[in-house]
C-alpha cells in the first residue's frame, strides 16, 4: 500500500526537479545572451578597434575614419592569385551597382601581409579596382591588432620568399554606428552584398 503511493510521489518530485532545471537553464541562457554574449558582439564594433593603419594614399587611418558610414572590410594580400583579386573585382561590381550610394559607404581592403604590401605597392594595386575601395597597410603589429580584434585568421604558409597567406576570406559588414552587422560570404549563392549594403546605407 505504501509502495503504491510512493511511486507517483517520486514521479511528481522528479517532474518538479526537471521543470525547475529547465527554468534555471532558460533564465541562465537569457542572462547570458543579454549580459555576456552582447558585450562579445560589441567587442567586434569598429569603434572598439584599436589600430592605426596607413591607406594607399599614405594617410593615417584609425577606427574614427570609418565613423558615420556603413563599412565593408575585406582582408587579403596582393600576392594572392585568386580569392583577393576576385573578391575585389566583386566588390568593385557591387560599388558600381550601388551608384551614388557607394559614396556613403567605406570599402576597405586590409593587407594581412604588410611586409610585402607597402603603401607604394597598394597605391598601384588599388588602381585596378573601384576607386571607392581603400587599401590599408601598416606595421605588422597594427595590422594584427585590427585583424585579431575582428577575429580574422591569418597565417604565413612558409618561411621562403614566395610564401602564401592563409586568411579569412569573408567580408566584414558594419552598420553606420560602427556596430558589427554580419560577415558576407561571396561564395554563397544566397549572398547579395549590394542589397545588404544598400539596406545599411539607408
Amino acid at each position: 500500500m505504501t509502495d503504491q503511493s510512493a511511486a507517483p510521489k517520486l514521479w511528481i518530485s522528479l517532474l518538479t526537479a526537471a521543470i525547475f532545471a529547465i527554468a534555471v537553464f532558460a533564465i541562465g541562457f537569457t542572462l547570458y545572451i543579454t549580459f555576456w554574449a552582447k558585450p562579445e558582439l560589441s567587442r567586434l564594433a569598429l569603434q572598439n578597434q584599436q589600430f592605426t593603419l596607413v591607406n594607399h594614399r599614405g594617410e593615417n587611418v584609425t577606427a574614427e575614419h570609418f565613423a558615420g558610414r556603413p563599412s565593408a572590410i575585406f582582408f587579403g594580400y596582393t600576392h594572392c592569385p585568386e580569392i583577393c583579386p576576385t573578391t575585389l573585382n566583386d566588390i568593385s561590381i557591387v560599388a558600381a551597382e550601388l551608384g551614388a550610394t557607394a559614396d556613403d559607404i567605406n570599402f576597405a581592403f586590409v593587407t594581412i601581409d604588410p611586409e610585402r604590401d607597402t603603401v607604394e605597392l597598394l597605391s598601384q594595386y588599388m588602381t585596378s579596382f573601384d576607386p571607392h575601395i581603400e587599401g590599408l597597410t601598416g606595421s605588422p603589429e597594427e595590422v594584427s591588432a585590427f585583424a585579431s580584434g575582428l577575429g580574422v585568421y591569418f597565417r604565413r604558409t612558409n618561411d621562403g620568399p614566395d610564401y602564401d597567406m592563409d586568411h579569412t576570406s569573408w567580408i566584414y559588414l558594419f552598420k553606420r554606428d560602427g556596430d558589427f552587422f554580419r560577415t558576407a560570404n561571396l561564395n554563397s549563392p544566397n549572398e547579395n552584398l549590394t542589397e545588404a549594403l544598400r539596406a545599411l546605407a539607408n
Partner: peptide, 12 residues
C-alpha cells in the same frame, strides 16, 4: 590566366 591587378607579381 586571370587578369593581373596593377603591381601584382603573381597570377593564377
Amino acid at each position: 590566366i586571370r587578369e593581373m591587378p596593377h603591381g601584382a607579381e603573381v597570377a593564377a
